[in-house]
Design a protein around this nucleic acid. Structure first.
Length: 281
DNA sequence: AACTCGCTCAACCGCGATCCC
DNA sequence: GGGGATCGCGGTTGAGCGAGT
């Protein structure tokens, strides 16, 4: 079987997602659903022309696989972020033990069962993703089950036997206050309360000296990242302030986008977005 | 203050399963 | 039925960060 070429071989982008890419992806999924990830970048790329017409150099040049992963693990509505409760941790441990022991079912091999483990556990924990559960398991739950010698070997290691409620408090505190790093090395994904103009102009103060788009105040208030709603996106991205920054208007921007893209689906899509946001009638 | 070490977790990778022409 | 395309999964990686030295 010949595999589909990796996105890196097709000039598609890899690595951390930018706020603009997130917004393009969210907007697309809100409108078209998430049934065909492979087709998504092509269709969402319509947005590129429109953005480009107002000098915002963003586009959704991602492979479908990357889009699906980003949506499933990070942008999907209802995702819970932040600390796991004791109950959730116990559930993971119990389910891991249960599912991991289901090796004697005749019609399924151990390998098949093992390969389904994380998604099955995730299905029992609403708002948690299999990827996150997997990370939690590998980072501390596994160690709680099997206390390792490394704790004794290295006094600098956090105590891992009683995460969150015991001597690991320091590490958990760090986790709780940790800045999501995805979109900015220091600050993470955009808050729905941010306008795009803010994200494009807020100076970065992070130590790594890379471009940052989120204010420290936002971070304080966003210990748990709220899932996007279409209304949030529209209210904030497509704000008057945004267009003031770029010296254009709703009508001008739509007209520019239409003339650049020449794609009826794209026009319909953005028309719909604007109308739902109440910016066009 | 500078360096090292360990932890976290988003994202990538490879592969098997499934879909679809 | 064959084979390519796509989906979805677990394993792994590596940048960023904080704590310890």
């Amino acid at each position: 079987m010949v595999r589909a070429p990796c996105c890196s071989n097709m000039g598609l982008k890899k690595g951390p997602w930018t706020p603009e890419e997130d917004r393009l992806l969210i907007s697309y999924v809100e409108k078209h659903g998430h049934e065909n990830w492979r087709a998504l970048p092509k269709q969402a790329a319509n947005a590129f022309f429109w953005h480009d017409s107002i000098s915002v150099s963003v586009g959704l040049l991602r492979c479908g696989k990357s889009c699906r992963l980003r949506w499933t693990n990070y942008l999907r509505p209802g995702i819970k972020r932040g600390n796991y409760t004791m109950e959730e941790e116990e559930t993971i441990i119990n389910l891991h033990e249960t599912l991991g022991n289901r090796t004697n079912i005749a019609w399924q091999t151990k390998e098949v069962l093992d390969s389904r483990r994380w998604s099955e556990i995730a299905s029992k924990l609403p708002g948690r993703t299999d990827n996150e559960i997997k990370n939690v398991w590998h980072t501390h739950l596994k160690k709680r089950i099997k206390p390792t010698q490394t704790v004794q070997d290295s006094p600098r290691k956090c105590q891992i036997d009683t995460p969150k409620f015991g001597s690991k408090a320091k590490a958990i505190d760090r986790k709780a206050t940790r800045k999501p790093k995805l979109d900015c090395p220091s600050h993470g994904p955009p808050s729905p309360s941010q306008s795009l103009s803010e994200t494009l102009t807020t100076p970065c103060t992070n130590s790594s000296n890379k471009m940052c788009e989120t204010s420290n105040e936002d971070i304080k208030e966003e210990a748990i990242v709220t899932p996007y709603e279409l209304s949030d996106i529209d209210d904030n991205i497509w704000s008057d302030a945004f267009f003031a920054d770029y010296g254009t208007s709703w009508d001008d921007s739509l007209a520019s986008f239409c003339s650049f893209s020449g794609n009826e689906d794209g026009i319909d899509f953005w028309m719909q977005v604007f109308m739902e946001a109440g910016d066009l009638s």
